[in-house]
Amino acid sequence: MLEVIIFSLLNGILYGLLLFMLSSGLTLIFSMMGVLNFAHASFYMLGAYFAYSLGMHIGFWPSLILAPILVAVVGALVERFGLRRVHVNGHVAELLFTFGLAYVIDEVVRLIWGTVPVAYMAPASLQQPLFNLFGVEYSMFRGVAMLIAILMFVALWFLLKKTRVGMMIRAALTHGEMVGHLGHNVPRLFMCVFGFGCALAGLAGVIGGPLLTTEPGMAATLGPIVFVVVVVGGMGSLPGAFYASLLIGLLQTFFVAIDASIGDILNGIGMNVDPYGEVTGITLANLAPMTPFILLVLILIFRPRGLMGELEP
């Protein structure tokens, strides 16, 4: 039992951190533009594919740096020549633009890399076990992935809270015009933030690619969950996104690990139901893929501003 708990904990945290890498960029962009970037998960996919293609020539480590930078460039170009023009027409136009962009990126990926998953794998040196617990190996790559995610979180926090650039960004988020009047180039700042957010998604892709699979459907599978994270955490709140990511990561892994059905639980709290019925026979493991969305519905009903979101002005 103990080993299931420990490994579920490790897996849940890793999955949660991966979700956070994705949602942090999304939340950052949201608080800047006031619009959800529907194409965010597509940048995550681009990160994985770029790392796969680059990795074949220059190896894993250089592509860990280069792939997110490339994604950032793509993101910045999208902001400069797409979003900025669309912005004039209001939020709905921006929303539709990112929505369409997601489809375009999906199709482009299919055209370039094919419809079948590509063999993007962690380097052989990282496939060795990091430690051995209860006879189960925990691969080095998972450890490294976790480390990178944590480093990223610390760096992001430092950048936003402790540096001049961070101060400017935070100021621009709430008082854009004032920052402009003070002589800063706000549109360029926004372009950089958008590119930076995309780079974070790209970095998640570099790590998520070998961990999950690198295939054209990877954006579509993770996209909805990332939105759930942002809503549950509270729109535009970075700490909120962090807690929500971990919460969803842990929920999903533990639900798989627990061998109990709805009926077992209801019986456990004293209700007398048939443990093998149509509904009561559903096991928690079956519900696991649904948990993020159940959580989303519950949060929207009982705490619409999310875990750490600010109250509507």
């Binding site: 039992m1 080993e3 299931v4 490994f7 579920s8 897996n11 209860f134 006879g135 189960v136 892994t253 798989v256 690990a257 061998d259 696991a288």
Partner: peptide, 8 residues
């Protein structure tokens, strides 16, 4: 998660 369950 499934694999750790199998292992256990």
């Amino acid at each position: 998660p499934y694999v750790s369950k199998i292992k256990a």
